[in-house]
């Protein structure tokens, strides 16, 4: 049921938001540079996966499973990607992603002072609080 972290990536592969669940893994320090490269590497992997896929119009990586975590990715029609890293026991990460996507549409895109494709302000309190509630519940 534990969500470790969330990344939001814009359509050119830049990381615009990261969230780390400090309760779930207190020893993880959020390192801005490392986050940027993790996000970009995932973006590249995603693009490669679509290219090498034997089937036409592949939707890229949706799930990545490991022994102690799973990664679920949601690609929106506009090219923005959301991915969460969760415990393998999490029942429905796709639903969670959908909720986060909804929150992003509601609270970020309606803000007149937000520039599209740019990093999301840390001081957007309503967004951060709602996200926290969603992830840590």
């Amino acid at each position: 049921m534990v969500v470790y972290s969330l990344y939001i990536i814009n359509k050119s592969g830049g990381v615009i938001y990261t969230y780390f669940n400090q309760k779930a893994s207190p020893q993880t320090k959020s390192n801005a540079n490392a986050n940027l490269s993790i996000g970009s590497v995932f973006h590249s992997l995603f693009t490669m996966a679509t290219t090498i896929s034997p089937v036409q119009n592949s939707s890229g990586i949706q799930v990545l499973e490991a022994n102690n975590f799973t990664l679920h990715c949601l690609l929106t029609v506009t090219g923005t990607k959301f991915f969460v890293i969760t415990d393998p026991s999490h029942p429905d990460p796709q639903a969670l992603l959908q909720q986060i996507y909804e929150l992003y549409c509601d609270d970020i895109l309606k803000n007149p002072f937000y520039d599209l494709e740019q990093p999301i302000y840390r001081h957007d309190k309503t967004f951060v609080l709602k996200l926290q509630e969603m992830i840590e519940k």
Binding site: D107, N111, F113, Y114, H123, K125, T126
Partner: peptide, 13 residues
């Protein structure tokens, strides 16, 4: 409702 304060006085819109 959906805006973040852009300036220090927090006035928004």
């Amino acid at each position: 409702q959906f805006t973040t304060a852009l300036y220090a006085n927090g006035l928004k819109c």
